[in-house]
Each structure stands twice: as structure tokens, then as C-alpha cells.
């Protein structure tokens, strides 16, 4: 009898794990079925090439490009902030800072990562935007710049902690050899350690990009809700995620074309993040055993 009990338990545990596979299948099925439905009404060529996105207006256009442009713009600004700051902190903590300092700083930075994103949105709208407006006259109240900057601040801990792990994993002998040759800490950091940890650092950046692409509340609050094909960071724009929120907060009847648009937009988002996550997974697997 105990044999049977053991087997039953194993099957029970396995089925809990299988739920994660069902989740993936569910996501793909939901997005795919609604998107296919959507493309029976809207041509896929229009979707990919039209330069206007106005599904909620009388004159409807279904070009995803303005939403992609908005997403790209805010993501680009976020990485521009997060990569230099995040990587510098990682190098500083790993090569320069005394251990005790590191012990205090790391949990403090983790707090930045624990703040809910709706709170960051409030910060962007009520602190960063007024501040930037006082420097840059003519900047709109909703814009890509302040949400991008705040998104960057949010991503700093992610880049710092993953890059730091990568730097930490570089064998000590490399660092000691570099010091032995008379290098300074700076030379050791950027000519030996960072190149040796490059795959891990690249993974941290890709995951940062993926996070920024999927980030919703900051841009929904502070970037505006006006789909616009522009690279100007000072005017209101709309990201893919914001559009989904915009439709969800209004009342849109189930089964209508507007309802399906959020799944088509979600599909575009899913494809982007899926590609990014797989690239990072691939890099991680490929370069993992370099020093082992």
C-alpha cells in the first residue's frame, strides 16, 4: 500500500507543476484565438503598416506602429537611465565598496524594486514631470520622458543585482592576475571583470528591456493616452500596455472589434517579450559554463 500512496503523491505534485504549462498554453490560446478573430475584420497588412491607431474613434485605423513607437521610446529612455547607473553601482559594489557598505546598500536598493508600479506612476506625474517642465519649457504634462526616466529608476535594482551576480561569478584569479600586473581597480573592473562577465550583464540588460516593454502603470499614468508615431519624448504618446488599460477601464462590449483589439495588442506585446526572454535564456545557457 505505501507504494501506491507514494505514487499518488507524486502524481499530485506533478499535476501542480503542470498548471504552469497550462498557463502558457492558456495565454497563447487566448491571444491567438482572439487575434485570429481580429484579423478576420482587419487586414494584417494594415495592422503592421498603417501609421494611425484609432480603434475607439469613428474613423477607425488599426496600425500598431504608433503603439510600438511609444513602447520603444519609453523603453529606450528607461535603459538609457538604468544601464549606466545600474552597471556603475554593480561595479562599484563589487570592486570598490567595503563589504559592510554593500551589506547596507543592497537591501536598500531592493526596496526600490519592491515599490508597486502604480506608486512610481504617481512619482512620475507629480514630481518628475513638474521638475522637468521647469527646465524644459513647452513640455507637455503627459510625456514619454518622465515616465521613461522613472521606469529607468525602477529597473536600476534589476540591472545592478544581475550584473553584480555576474561580476561576482568571475573567478578571483582573473582579478588577482590583473592586480598583479599593476592595474588599477578601474582598469581591472572595465578591462578584465566587465568583459569576463559580459554575458551576464547583457542578460541583465535584455531582462531590463523586457521589463520596460511590459511595464504598464507608470506609462498609463504619466505618458498620456495618445497614440502617436513620434520619437519626440516631450509630447503625450501611448504604449501597447497603456492601450490595453485604456480599453479595460472604459466599457467595451465583449466580442466587439474594440474588445478584440486589446488581444491583438497583447499578442504584439507577448511576441516582443517572448523573443527578448528567449534570447536572454539562450545567452545564459550558452555562456554559463565558461569558467567552470
Amino acid at each position: 500500500m505505501p507504494r501506491i500512496k507514494e505514487k499518488v503523491i507524486e502524481v499530485g505534485l506533478a499535476s501542480a507543476a503542470v498548471i504552469t504549462i497550462l498557463t502558457t498554453i492558456g495565454i497563447i490560446w487566448v491571444l491567438l484565438s482572439q487575434t485570429i478573430d481580429f484579423f478576420s475584420d482587419v487586414s494584417i497588412v494594415d495592422f503592421l503598416t498603417d501609421t494611425q491607431w484609432t480603434p475607439l474613434f469613428a474613423d477607425k485605423h488599426f496600425g500598431i506602429l504608433p503603439l510600438v513607437a511609444g513602447t520603444f521610446l519609453t523603453t529606450f529612455i528607461a535603459i538609457l537611465v538604468a544601464l549606466p547607473v545600474g552597471l556603475t553601482i554593480a561595479v562599484y559594489l563589487n570592486e570598490y565598496a567595503p563589504k559592510s557598505f554593500r551589506k547596507i546598500i543592497k537591501p536598500l536598493l531592493e526596496i526600490l524594486a519592491a515599490v508597486p508600479t502604480v506608486v512610481y506612476g504617481f512619482f512620475a506625474l507629480s514630481v518628475i514631470t513638474p521638475f522637468l517642465q521647469s527646465i524644459i519649457p513647452g513640455m507637455a504634462g503627459f510625456n514619454a520622458l518622465s515616465s521613461g526616466i522613472v521606469m529607468g529608476i525602477m529597473i536600476i535594482p534589476l540591472i545592478t543585482s544581475l550584473s553584480e551576480d555576474a561580476l561576482f561569478a568571475v573567478p578571483k584569479s582573473l582579478r588577482e592576475a590583473s592586480y598583479g600586473m599593476g592595474s588599477t581597480r578601474l582598469q581591472t573592473a572595465f578591462k578584465v571583470m566587465v568583459p569576463a562577465a559580459s554575458s551576464g550583464i547583457i542578460v541583465s540588460v535584455i531582462l531590463g528591456i523586457s521589463r520596460a516593454v511590459g511595464e504598464t502603470m507608470i506609462v498609463a499614468i504619466a505618458a498620456g493616452q495618445q497614440p502617436r508615431l513620434t520619437m519626440n519624448p516631450l509630447v503625450p504618446i501611448e504604449t501597447i500596455t497603456t492601450y490595453i488599460v485604456q480599453v479595460s477601464t472604459g466599457d467595451v462590449a465583449h466580442g466587439s472589434l474594440e474588445y478584440k483589439t486589446i488581444f491583438a495588442a497583447g499578442m504584439a506585446l507577448f511576441v516582443f517579450t517572448f523573443i527578448l526572454n528567449n534570447i536572454s535564456y539562450w545567452i545564459k545557457k550558452k555562456f554559463q559554463e565558461k569558467y567552470e
Binding site: L207, E215, F274
Partner: peptide, 18 residues
């Protein structure tokens, strides 16, 4: 399962909403 879970962890939360 392992590949799948690491992929799921990277799916934006709004997609879970859909």
C-alpha cells in the same frame, strides 16, 4: 517545466490579465 517557468516569469503582468 523549467524552460516554461523561466519564460512565464518574464511574461508582462498585463498579459495575465488578458
Amino acid at each position: 517545466l523549467e524552460i516554461n517557468i523561466s519564460n512565464l516569469a518574464g511574461v508582462p503582468s498585463i498579459i495575465y490579465g488578458l
